[in-house]
């Protein structure tokens, strides 16, 4: 029972990171109808920026801030300098370009920082606190939860309560009509990329220290989990991404705890396959309702 509690809490902690990454994927999917396969690599690049800033200044928090800013800028750059120029008539084109970006970013990171694992710092201890003799969450886990909660609530607030959020949603759903109503659709798209990439960078900052450390490929498996979470939730649904992320986190934690950690990559792929076979639109796909 103690073990179950621990695995559940640990799964939710990891799952919240998947949720944030999945949310970032959903943001771009909704805005641009592109699955951003480069998100993991972009997030790692931002984490390397944090590494450099922290090394130079000695401050974790300056590095953390730098990662988020770098993520925002990189997202905007990828939209303006790359994705905007891609012919979107075939949905495969942006996918191929995104995969190309992955190779490019990882190669550049390898050249600049080297292809070895670097230990990633955490602002809080990672040893689990005991409550009544049961190992539960570490201070770092609590930090992860709190950060992701702020991000999720903040995004929900931006999209549902602010004028810029309304513009972004309108631009995504009906670009032509939005332009007629004075919305700068291209600008909203870039903003969407920036936000998503910033969230992705944040997720990398939270997950990389819990794995082997910083490496150009550090987010590869996390990306697979995040992508699975987004698909589980239905690529179009932000709440679905959050629930999907938590579900994937729980599943992987139980598999790793009860079956063996070697099997977690396999488990996540099996889940992805199962969802695509049984319910390809995801568990939270909105009912198709288009005007005639």
């Amino acid at each position: 029972m103690d073990r179950f509690v621990f695995l559940t809490l640990d799964g939710l902690s990891r799952g919240s990171v998947y949720a944030a990454s999945a949310l970032a994927l959903v943001l771009i999917w909704r805005a641009a109808r592109i699955v951003n396969f480069a998100q993991g690599a972009m997030a790692v690049a931002a984490a390397y920026v944090a590494h450099s800033v922290t090394s130079a200044t000695g401050s974790y928090w300056l590095g953390f801030l730098a990662a988020v800013v770098a993520g925002l800028l990189l997202g905007a750059l990828v939209d303006v300098a790359v994705m905007r120029l891609v012919d979107h008539r075939s949905p495969l084109n942006p996918v191929i370009v995104a995969l190309g970006l992955v190779l490019l970013i990882q190669a550049v990171l390898g050249m600049v920082y080297g292809n070895e694992y670097r230990p990633a710092e955490t602002p809080f201890r990672r040893t689990a606190l005991s409550v009544g003799g049961v190992a539960v969450l570490s201070p770092f886990d609590l930090f992860v939860f709190a950060t992701i909660a702020v991000v999720v609530v903040g995004l929900a607030w931006i999209f549902t309560r602010t004028a810029v959020g309304l513009r972004m949603r309108a631009a995504a759903f009906a670009p032509e009509v939005s332009r007629l109503l004075g919305v700068n659709v291209g600008g909203m798209l870039t903003l969407g990329w920036a936000l998503a990439s910033g969230v992705g960078a944040l997720a990398a900052m939270l997950v990389v220290p819990t794995e082997l450390g910083l490496h150009p490929h550090a987010m590869d498996l996390v990306f697979v989990s995040a992508f699975t979470a987004a698909v589980v939730g239905g690529l179009d649904s932000p709440p679905g991404a959050v629930v999907g992320g938590l579900l994937v986190g729980l599943l992987l934690s139980y598999v790793s705890g009860y079956v063996g950690s070697d099997l977690t990559p396999l488990a996540v792929l099996a889940l992805l396959l199962a969802v695509l076979l049984v319910r390809p639109a995801g568990l939270f796909a909105p009912v198709a309702a288009r005007q005639v």
Binding site: A163, L166, R167, R169, A170, F173, A174, E176, V177, S178, L180, L181, G182, V183, A289, R290, Q291
Partner: peptide, 17 residues
């Protein structure tokens, strides 16, 4: 050109943003 995914109120507010 009604945005089906937005509410009536959001559609209208969009016109004045």
């Amino acid at each position: 050109g009604v945005v089906g995914e937005l509410t009536v109120d959001e559609n209208l507010r969009l016109g004045g943003l």
